[in-house]
C-alpha cells in the first residue's frame, strides 16, 4: 500500500466542496481504499461542512474555514477536521429518532448520527477557538 498524507484547506464554497470530494476519491484510489470507506468519509465531510455553514456563528469579516487532513495509520484512515464558527461538539447531541412511524418521524438531525454510526472511533476537542474532530475508519 502506498503511504502518504493529504491535507486541504477549503472555505466551504460548493465548487470547492466538489473538488474536495474528488480529491478524497483520488486519495482513496492511491491508497487502494475500499469504495465503502471513500463513500463514508465523503459523507462525513459533507455533513460536517454543511453543519459548519448552517449552524456556525461567524463574526463580521470572518469567513468559514475548514481544514481537512487524511492519513493512513495502522490500517486505519484518520480524518482530522478543523473548523471555525464557534464551539460545537458533533460527538454529542445525537438522540435521533430512527424508529417512529413515517408520519411522526422528525425531519433533520440525521447527518451527525450517520457520522458517529459509521466511524470506528471519534474524538472532539475545542482548542484555541478551533473545533478539532478526529474520525477513524478501519480499512477492511
Amino acid at each position: 500500500m502506498i503511504t502518504g498524507d493529504f491535507n486541504v484547506q477549503i472555505s466551504a464554497r460548493v465548487s470547492e466542496l466538489h473538488d474536495l470530494y474528488a480529491m478524497v476519491e483520488t486519495f482513496g484510489e492511491a491508497q487502494e481504499l475500499p469504495n465503502r470507506t471513500v463513500f463514508i468519509i465523503n459523507l462525513a465531510l459533507e455533513e460536517l461542512v454543511t453543519n459548519t455553514l448552517v449552524h456556525g456563528t461567524f463574526d463580521d469579516g470572518i469567513e468559514p474555514e475548514i481544514n481537512i487532513g487524511l492519513s493512513i495509520n495502522n490500517d486505519r484512515v484518520i480524518v482530522v477536521v478543523r473548523s471555525n464558527g464557534g464551539e460545537f461538539d458533533p460527538t454529542q447531541d445525537s438522540n435521533v429518532d430512527t424508529t417512529s412511524e413515517l408520519e411522526n418521524r422528525p425531519i433533520g438531525g440525521l447527518g451527525l448520527h450517520l457520522i458517529k454510526a459509521q466511524a470506528d472511533d471519534y474524538s472532539y476537542e475545542f482548542v484555541d477557538g478551533i473545533n478539532l474532530l478526529t474520525l477513524e475508519y478501519n480499512i477492511s
Binding site: Y21, F39, N42, L43, E46, E47, T50, L102, E103, R105, I107, G108, L110, G111, L114
Partner: peptide, 19 residues
Amino acid sequence: SFISSSGMRVLLIGAKNIQ
C-alpha cells in the same frame, strides 16, 4: 453514486406528503 442526509430529508418529506 452519493446521497447525504440533505437528500434523504427530501425523500422523507416526499414520503410524508405522498402518504
